[in-house]
C-alpha cells in the first residue's frame, strides 16, 4: 500500500549514491524484497516506472527484484521452516514460540550504471 512512499526513498538513496560516484545515468536498480515484507513487488515496479521517469538520472531505468524467501526459526525445537507455508506455528513441534529470521527485507541491493 505504501509502495509509492518506498519508491521515493529508493530514489533519494540512489541519487545520493549516484552523486557520490559521479554517475550520470542509472540503467538498473536491483532490490532485495523479502517474501513477507509489506511491499508488493508488482506495485513497487509500477510506482517505480511512474516516478523514475520523472528524473533525468533514472529515465528508463529498470527495477529488478530479487525475492528473499521467508524463513522462521522455532525456539521450541531449534529448527527452521518456511514461513509462507506454515505461518506462526512450527510444523515440526507445533510451538508458537517462533521468530522470523529472514524475509522482511526491503533493501537496495545495487545499481547498474
Amino acid at each position: 500500500m505504501h509502495e509509492l512512499g518506498v519508491v521515493f526513498y529508493i530514489i533519494k538513496d540512489v541519487k545520493a549514491v549516484a552523486e557520490e560516484n559521479h554517475v550520470e545515468h542509472v540503467s538498473t536498480v536491483v532490490m532485495d524484497i523479502g517474501e513477507v515484507s509489506t511491499v508488493v513487488p508488482h506495485l513497487l515496479t509500477d510506482c517505480w516506472r511512474w516516478a523514475a521517469d520523472k528524473e533525468d538520472l533514472l529515465k528508463g531505468c529498470e527495477m529488478k527484484i530479487n525475492t528473499i524467501p521467508a524463513v522462521t526459526w522455532c525456539d521450541g525445537c531449534k529448527k527452521e521452516y518456511e514461513t509462507v507455508k506454515f505461518g506462526k506455528t512450527c510444523p515440526h513441534c507445533n510451538s508458537d514460540n517462533t521468530w522470523l529470521i529472514r524475509g522482511n527485507e526491503v533493501e537496495i541491493n545495487s545499481i547498474i550504471v
Binding site: 518506498v6 526513498y9 529508493i10 533519494k12 538513496d13 540512489v14 549514491v17 560516484n21 554517475v23 540503467s27 527485507e105 526491503v106 533493501e107 537496495i108 541491493n109 545495487s110 545499481i111 547498474i112 550504471v113
Partner: peptide, 14 residues
C-alpha cells in the same frame, strides 16, 4: 557497465 553495491535498507534513512 558497472555495478555499484548498496546493500542498504530502504528504511535506514528514515
Amino acid at each position: 557497465v558497472k555495478v555499484i553495491e548498496i546493500k542498504k535498507s530502504v528504511f535506514a534513512e528514515n
